[in-house]
Amino acid sequence: MLGNFFRRLFYFVLLLALQVLIFNHVQILGYATPMICLYFILLFPPSASRTVVVAWGFLMGLCQDIFTNTPGMNAAALTLLGLLQPVLYKAFLAKDSDEDESELLPSARVMGWPAFLRYLLVAVLIQQVVFYLLEAFSFFHWQDMLINILGGSLMSLLFIAAIESVRIGGASKQQGRA
């Protein structure tokens, strides 16, 4: 239980650092900033308490907001994602799995890449749409917003899929050694 918590904290700090130090500075033609923080929310197993997922989502969003001067925007988007994550995961997990579903950690290995990418795409779209709608509250440029949402989703999808493939690659090596 405690080990679980520390592993989660490690991922939290690692993803936040990556986001703040690298990905916040990535822009293609001034649009499309990848948002990889939400990967953290996607990794909760169905057995995790939904209260806990919502709280972690808020915390992650708030930490990112502090760095980007966007008070509450990321926090609102990731809190919503925290609420929806268990539902999304159940919806995209293949029904014929024999193992106990509640303990399965979401990953491309468990779900298969096509299902995992669909799961990722929906999550990324939800986060980007909420974030840019909140940003547009004060000022409305709908063409810019659309390009930002689509570009940002594509970039996030690409980078999170890359991180996922590194993560499950590393895990399979560890299993091979054992």
């Binding site: 308490s49 939904r50 997922v53 919502v54 808020f58 969003g61 008070p71 919503l80 925290g82």
Partner: peptide, 21 residues
């Protein structure tokens, strides 16, 4: 359904931050 209440409370906090910055 306590997670719903937490969700609503946290979204209200986010909104407060957003509009009263």
């Amino acid at each position: 359904y306590n997670y719903w209440f937490l969700f609503i409370v946290l979204e209200i906090i986010s909104g407060t931050l957003l509009f009263h910055f």
